[in-house]
């Protein structure tokens, strides 16, 4: 104890220093370490969260891009298919139109031929009738002086008969 007193030991001062240090300890703990460590922890969490979100966003972007590619591919395929379909349809239609028009044309030609035939026949018939009449008239006129009425009649009737035959 005497040795300690030589070094200036004083219980009151000692207690004062103890109390002083405990106060400082409490204040530092309460107002320095806790807020700073909390802050560091919070910041760490924020950074982690941010990194995670960035990663998620990157993945989302990647998957979206992939989806986009797939969609575009699908759309292109669909468009190609559509064009193909349209082409075939158009070809078919063209064929159909061609066929119908051909048919129609054939029919028209046929009709026209028939009409021509018909009119030819008629003309022939008319011509025949006309010629026969002309012949009869000619016969009648020429036979008037040569033959009797009876003979005349017979001749004309004969002629008519021949003609009709």
């Amino acid at each position: 104890m005497e040795l300690l007193e030589k070094f200036g030991f004083d219980p009151v001062l000692l207690i004062a220093q103890v109390i002083n240090f405990l106060i400082i300890l409490y204040v530092l703990k309460r107002f320095l370490y806790k807020p700073i460590l909390d802050m560091l922890k919070k910041r760490e969490e924020t950074v982690k969260e941010g990194l995670k979100q960035a990663e998620e966003a990157r993945l989302l972007l990647e998957s979206t891009q992939e989806k986009e590619k797939v969609i575009i591919k699908k759309a292109r395929l669909a468009a190609e298919q559509m064009i193909k379909d349209a082409k075939t349809q158009a070809q078919e239609e063209a064929k159909l139109i061609e066929e119908t028009s051909k048919k129609q044309a054939a029919r028209l030609i046929e009709d026209a031929q028939r009409q021509i035939e018909l009119s030819e026949n008629e003309t022939e018939k008319k011509l025949a009738t006309y010629v026969s009449r002309l012949a009869i008239e000619l016969l009648t006129k020429s036979s008037k002086e040569l033959f009797s009425e009876k003979e005349q009649k017979e001749i004309s009737q004969n002629a008519i008969k021949h003609i009709k035959q």
Binding site: L13, L14, Q17
Partner: peptide, 9 residues
């Protein structure tokens, strides 16, 4: 530099 302080600590 006071022994009381260091002893208290």
């Amino acid at each position: 530099s006071d022994f009381n302080t260091t002893l208290a600590l």
